[in-house]
Amino acid sequence: MATKKNDFPSVLAFERKLNPSDGFLYGTKWNDKEVSVPLKLVEKSVRGTISNRLKSAVANDPLKLNSEVQKPNLQTVDYCALPQDCDTLKMIFTLKVIGSVGEPSSCNVAEFQSKLKSAVSTYAQKYGFKELGKRYAYNIASGRFLWRNRVGAEAIEVHVRILGANKTWIFDGKNYSIRNFDKSDENILTLGELIAETLAGSDSKTLEITTYAKVENGQEVFPSEELVLDKGKSTTKSKILYAVDSIAAIHSQKIGNALRTIDTWYPEYSDPINSAGPIASEPYGAVTNMGKAFRNPKDKVDFYTLFDQFANETSLNNENDMHYVMSVLIRGGVFGKGDKE
């Protein structure tokens, strides 16, 4: 007997199954990777020019425009760059992969939990998390987590090793496009199988990922930028970068977002005009820098619509929808319907 919609739990949460650490940034040399210089943030005060869009009354009046552009645009910002004797950015983080996917950390309807466990077990037996594992491995190999630091890099090398085991992989990150997951090779497959087997099991494994991006001597690099909501009260800086123990770093959340950027199953992916390429697995397919949700509930392609069918023993006919639902469960989150609808 299928679970009624009203029997869905009001309390339902899943723990994240891919847990990256912060990524720490160092300067090194492409031909001598033993060099490792922790990157520090530098504070700069600069006098910029007025470049924002002006009101028509100002823009169309030469006198007002000249008066406006003469105003000093004073800024204090954080800045980070490689030393002059280092041509390569080195980034290190760890990634813990945890099994028992689909088992809620909290659920207040036992019948629902039992049926969900059965649905996840069916998926694991049929697909074995292989497609998801391959895509996570691909994002590691491509260095997608470098974000802006990947742009313009002459060469990228990604080293992956299992902590506590004598197993390593080395990838040429430039060989892997970040627009699709078409390329496959033995290293991608074996790393993907390790991730898939861990997700399907009940144990965990931790990977250490060290990435080298050749960007040339003294070039600017890009740690995460801090979000300061009361910027006017607590600081005069217009840009605040992230550091841990005085070492420039990238947020673990930002690395996690890159690793789970595997959703090519949303409807507009194949549209050359409206596609955003692979997007992070999110309940509504949200891409904040575009201000768009690619999985609108109105189109019945959002996580909650598909998850209700999946967990309610209503078969999802589309294999891709099942991959998507499982990828959001791996992401984790609070998915209960609440006390009020």
Rank of each mutant, 00 (worst) to 15 (best):
G143H: 06
A124I: 14
K5V: 13
N66T: 14
S56D: 15
A81C: 10
K237D: 12
F335I: 03
E197N: 14
K183W: 02
G27K: 11
T264A: 01
G218K: 07
A59E: 13
S67I: 14
A141W: 04
N166T: 11
A196L: 08
G291S: 01
G285K: 07
L63Y: 14
S224V: 03
E216W: 15
K90T: 04
D339H: 14
W30D: 13
T198F: 08
E154Q: 08
I279D: 01
S184W: 00
S281A: 15
D61T: 06
Q219W: 09
D302A: 00
A165I: 02
S67F: 15
P20Y: 08
D321H: 14
M1W: 11
S204C: 07
S118R: 13
A155M: 05
P297F: 02
F335N: 00
G338T: 12
S202Y: 02
F171W: 08
G332D: 00
P278L: 02
L194H: 06
V109R: 11
E111D: 15
E341N: 14
D172F: 05
T3K: 09
P223M: 13
G192C: 08
K237P: 12
T314F: 10
G23R: 11
D185T: 07
I188C: 03
V325C: 11
L39D: 01
Q113I: 02
K292F: 00
S121E: 14
I240P: 01
F112L: 06
I188S: 04
V221D: 02
E225T: 09
G232M: 10
K4F: 13
V158P: 01
A213G: 01
V325G: 07
I178C: 10
P104S: 03
G48V: 02
T168L: 05
Q219T: 12
K231W: 01
G336M: 03
E34L: 12
E319Y: 03
D271E: 04
D271N: 03
P267T: 02
A280D: 04
S238H: 03
N312H: 10
E43P: 03
Q219E: 15
L259K: 00
D271P: 00
I92A: 14
V215N: 11
T94A: 05
N60H: 15
F294S: 02
K214M: 11
P278H: 05
Y79W: 05
A286P: 03
L82N: 07
Y79D: 04
V325T: 09
N19V: 15
I98A: 10
Q309P: 09
D321P: 07
K300W: 12
F294M: 03
L189S: 12
I240W: 00
T261G: 00
S51M: 10
S315Q: 13
Q75I: 06
I156M: 07
S252L: 08
L18S: 04
I247N: 06
E15G: 14
N175D: 13
I140V: 12
I170M: 08
E15K: 08
Y123W: 08
L329Y: 02
L227Y: 10
L41I: 08
Y26F: 15
N166E: 15
N274A: 01
I92T: 15
E319L: 07
I330N: 01
F145C: 02
S106E: 15
P297T: 00
S105P: 06
P38Q: 00
Y136S: 05
A141F: 03
A276W: 02
H251S: 13
S51P: 06
N52Y: 13
V42G: 04
